[in-house]
Design a protein around this nucleic acid. Structure first.
Lengths: 205, 205, 205, 205
DNA sequence: AATGAATGAGTATTCATTCAT
DNA sequence: GATGAATGAATACTCATTCAT
């Protein structure tokens, strides 16, 4: 990667980081492209060299942030010494636990990806890949970790979908507003429900 | 209710219906107040006699539509002959079934309230009641039907929260885009998971 | 004055007082007729039964307030025991002193009539009299007190004009912002200058 | 100054001139930004690249016009052959005479800066300098001409304040409406009063 | 006389996008 | 690639005024 490419990447990253900062602080609707560009220290026109419009950068940001979180979670779980001996259920619960903890520690991130950590946004926003990463990369990292395909789970995609939607939608109010209860109180219910979901998909179910 | 009040109600209802039509057709961001007013056949300024701004009418609309759906579902279940003999689980499943079927038949409604059929929106948007209905009304209709309080369920509010979030978030992609599968395929998983959630809250669990 | 008339006067007075309050608090441009009416506790449409528009009430208010101040000042001076033995100069200085003191104590009033305590506003705003008072009333009260006409002063109207403009324009910044100095420091200069103006108009000058 | 800078100055000047024309013709309140932009031959949005709002351009205009007049007056007096031998009083009277004559010849200017040729507006509007000119420039030009500081006049700033306010407030009605008399008739009184003001501030007074 | 719902013209302001440099 | 001046469409919101009751 040459110097110019580096500069390009720097500008793009600067735009992404600045946009994330502004989107989480002021909201997407209330943030203008001029603001993003100014805060990123580049000219307004330059923005359009990297992104089509505000929604383009927003979508890239969501998949970038959500993907990063998933990959970090997967890596965390895979780095455990006893990962090989863990059951699929335990690996999923460890993954979810890591994600919930991460979102507790970064409420801006939670607010931003909140209910977007879902199937839909992956499908849409991943059409144009960010930094050569794409939908498949994420899916693969995820599936590989969980060895879903090997184990003949029934409707594994549906299972992942149900867990993803369940976790992301229930955590939002609990972490941000402690509604209807705080996340510590909610976690056992979430984990138990995940166990029940997985059980339905087990090969011998 | 005097003639003027009648006119007022008509205007307000006309605005709500027109706004719903436009919001679901074009999206909230892409709909201007001028458009709503024009389509409703009233002057632009008149809009502001009834709603503070676009987000005011949107929120009122969400709670109005979501509330109507819940109440309709509750009434439907309660009108069953054998409701008295149904277990709580069966009553909840009947309720969810009615809601899912309704959303299948009215995809605009689904798209609109989609992920907003949640705790947060009730709390916020119900502060100002619409047509004298308010938060408590909904909650009561709901709780009365389910007799939650009588049966010593553990954390009944958390249980409702988990079910609500789970159903609304998983139905969205399935009904609208058949992703990751169509709703008929998904329903058994949804019902089974709801059973598992309820089981965690049963008095003797 | 019958009951109905009394109500009329009350409404008008209420509007005037409310408008003064709002004009001095928020500024004339920033005050709407709806606000005035609401704060005065009457219906919007009723405003138009008493005043043509916002500028009508503003002008009536200026002349009403300025006139009241002048009359109060004249009465104060005339109530002095030794008024008969005071020279014209002394009477004018006493009058000015009373006015300056009043404006110091009511900065809202000063801000409102500020630079409007002038020839022009009397001419314009007095065309329609307020409560049957009119231009002539003020002028007469003023001239009678000062016995200007009797004493063969040269260009007495010009003299009053010069003093009026001089006092009102110089007091504004001094009282409100202590710029370029506070009013106590300025007063001797003002009085001395008034003496000089009067001297130019003395019969034997 | 590059080509773009030149264009910028031209646009700004064009806006200032157009705004002055409209403000004096129709009044500030009755002039919209759209009108100013259209009349200046630029797009509406471009206005906001140069001025914050209508009151920004109005204030810049007042100080610009008032400052220009003062500087022109100062230069005129200083260009007199015998300026060195003129007393301070004579120099001030020459200055005032030039200003009065200028305002007689440009009644729009008089109407616009009218009672604004005062301490307050200088303080406020000069905070942001126009074309690199600033408060100090004006004050210096003025004070240098009058050599006020050298001559140990008492409260020189107060003296300037009194004269400024006196002249600007008394000229307004006289020049525009010949009220209470025309300016030729008024001038001797104005000059004599200025003499009296100066005398109070003389070192040996 | 009094009301206040309804009007719709009017205006400020924003902002995505373009393009000459 | 990078810039940022210029654009002008788009839109929210206000408010004086009217008029049926």
């Amino acid at each position: 990667m040459g110097k110019i490419d580096l500069n390009k990447s720097q500008k793009k990253l600067s735009l992404l980081n600045t946009a994330f900062e502004l989107f989480t602080t002021k909201g997407v609707n209330e943030t203008s492209i001029a603001e993003i560009a100014k805060a990123a220290g580049i000219a307004k026109g330059t923005f359009y060299l990297y992104f089509r419009d505000k929604y383009d950068i927003r979508n890239k940001l969501i998949s970038y942030k959500a993907g990063s979180l998933l990959i970090a979670a997967a890596e965390e779980v895979q780095s455990k010494e006893d990962v090989e001996s863990m059951s699929l259920t335990d690996r999923i619960l460890a993954l979810v636990d890591f994600i919930i903890t991460s979102l507790e520690e970064d409420k801006n991130l939670l607010m931003f990806i909140s209910k977007n950590l879902s199937w839909g946004i992956f499908r849409e926003s991943m059409k144009d890949s960010l930094e050569e990463e794409n939908d498949e990369d994420f899916k693969n990292a995820f599936y590989d970790l969980l060895s879903l395909t090997e184990d003949n789970y029934k409707d594994p995609e549906v299972m992942i979908y149900l867990i993803t939607e369940f976790v992301s939608s229930t955590c939002y109010n609990s972490i941000l507003y402690e509604e209807p209860c705080n996340i510590e109180h909610l976690k056992p219910y979430i984990f138990e429900t995940i166990r029940a979901i997985i059980k339905q998909h087990e090969p011998n179910a």
